[in-house]
C-alpha cells in the first residue's frame, strides 16, 4: 500500500499564487455576462482589483453604469459592450472567444441550464470540432490533505464509455494546467468490484485498464472504486485493495453520470466542510459556472481556476 501522496499544488492558496504569477505575465480578457444583481459580479470585481483579469462587460451599458455607481464599483478600464439581452451576450462572448478576443467567460445572473443551452447552440461556436467540453469542480475538504477534483456534474449528459473517456482526458488536461501532473483518478461506483449488472463498475475497470495500457495518458487510474475506498486510506486497506496508486488518495473523482456528479457537487456546496470552485473546460475558453448557493469564496476560486485554465 502506498503512502498518501500530496502534490505540490494542494490548496486554493496555491491555486491563487499560481494564478497571480500567470496574470503578472498576461491578464486574461474576461467577459462577464448578465452582471446586474448577480453575486458573481462582486467576485469578478475583486479579481479585477487584484490584477488577475482584464474586465469586459457584456450587458446593457446604461444599466451597468448605474449599477456600478450605486454599488460603488470603480469601472475605470472596464470595456463595456452594450448588449441588453443576456442570450445575445452569451453568443457574442462565445464568438469572440473563438477569435481570441476573450480568454474567459463568467456567468452572471442567468440560470445555468439556460446559459449552457445557449452556449452550446451552433451559432455560439463555443465547441471546437471533436473537442469535448465538460464541467470540473475542485474541492479542498477540511479532512482531506489535498485538493480533490470532481467531474462531470453539469455538462455531459451521456455516460457511455466514450463520454467518460472524454471527461477523464479533460480532467487530466485541467489537472496539468493547475500544476498537478500524473493525477490519481478514481472512477467512482457504488462498489469496488466488477458486477456485470452494474454498468458503472464495468466502465471503471475499462478506464483503469486503458490507463494501464497507456491508451489514456498522464494519469494513474483505478476503478471501480467506492467513495470511501477512493478517499480514505483506512477504508481502502480494510477492503483489501492492494497495488493501487489511487485508492485512499484520489486527486480526481470521475462520477458515473451527470445526476450523480451534480448531486455530489450540490451536496458539497451546501453542506460540505470544504472550499470549492467550478468551471466548464474544453471549449474555446474556460467558463466559470456557479450556482446561486455558492459562497463568495467559491465564486472567486472559480475565477482563479479559469485564469489557470485559460
Amino acid at each position: 500500500m502506498n503512502n498518501f501522496n500530496i502534490p505540490s499544488v494542494k490548496s486554493f492558496k496555491d491555486i491563487y499564487s499560481k494564478a497571480k504569477d500567470k496574470a503578472n505575465k498576461y491578464k486574461p480578457k474576461t467577459a462577464l455576462i448578465a452582471p446586474h444583481g448577480s453575486a458573481m459580479t462582486e467576485s469578478f470585481v475583486k479579481a479585477v482589483n487584484e490584477n488577475l483579469i482584464e474586465p469586459f462587460i457584456l450587458a446593457d451599458e446604461k444599466l451597468f453604469r448605474k449599477y456600478a455607481l450605486n454599488n460603488n464599483i470603480n469601472i475605470d478600464g472596464y470595456k463595456i459592450l452594450d448588449i441588453n439581452q443576456p442570450d445575445k451576450a452569451i453568443i457574442t462572448a462565445s464568438q469572440m472567444s473563438g477569435k481570441n478576443e476573450i480568454d474567459i467567460i463568467v456567468k452572471g445572473r442567468v440560470p445555468a441550464e439556460e446559459f449552457l443551452n445557449i452556449l452550446f447552440e451552433k451559432e455560439s461556436k463555443f465547441q471546437k470540432k471533436g473537442k469535448p467540453v465538460s464541467h470540473i469542480s475542485l474541492f479542498q475538504p477540511k479532512n482531506y490533505q489535498k485538493l480533490l477534483m470532481l467531474t462531470d456534474g453539469a455538462v455531459t449528459v451521456k455516460n457511455d464509455l466514450k463520454s467518460l473517456i472524454n471527461i477523464t482526458n479533460n480532467a487530466i488536461s485541467f489537472s496539468g494546467k493547475i500544476g498537478i501532473d500524473n493525477p490519481r483518478i478514481a472512477v467512482l461506483a457504488a462498489v469496488e468490484v466488477v458486477y456485470p449488472q452494474m454498468d458503472s463498475t464495468i466502465k471503471g475497470a475499462v478506464l483503469a485498464k486503458m490507463a494501464e495500457r497507456n491508451q489514456i495518458k498522464g494519469a494513474f487510474i483505478d476503478g471501480p472504486l467506492s467513495f470511501d475506498v477512493a478517499m480514505d486510506m483506512e477504508a481502502a486497506i480494510g477492503k483489501g485493495i492492494k497495488n493501487s496508486e489511487v485508492a485512499g488518495q484520489a486527486d480526481i473523482m470521475i462520477a458515473p453520470d451527470i445526476d450523480t456528479g451534480n448531486s455530489i457537487y450540490k451536496a458539497m456546496t451546501l453542506y460540505g466542510d470544504t472550499e470549492m470552485g467550478g468551471i466548464v473546460f474544453g471549449g474555446n475558453v474556460p467558463v466559470t459556472l456557479n450556482a446561486f448557493v455558492d459562497s463568495e469564496q467559491t465564486r472567486f476560486n472559480s475565477i482563479l481556476m479559469s485564469v489557470l485554465a485559460s
Binding site: F139, P141, K142, N143, Y144, L188, A189, A190, M198, S200, S226, F227, D228, M231, D232, A255, P256, D257, D259, T260, S263, I264, A267, M268, Y271, G272, D273, T274
Partner: peptide, 18 residues
C-alpha cells in the same frame, strides 16, 4: 434518485465531508 450509484455516492460524500 435514479441509480444505486447516485444514492450511494451522495450519501457517502455527505458522511465523509459533511
Amino acid at each position: 434518485v435514479d441509480s444505486i450509484e447516485e444514492c450511494n455516492l451522495v450519501a457517502k460524500s455527505l458522511i465523509q465531508f459533511a
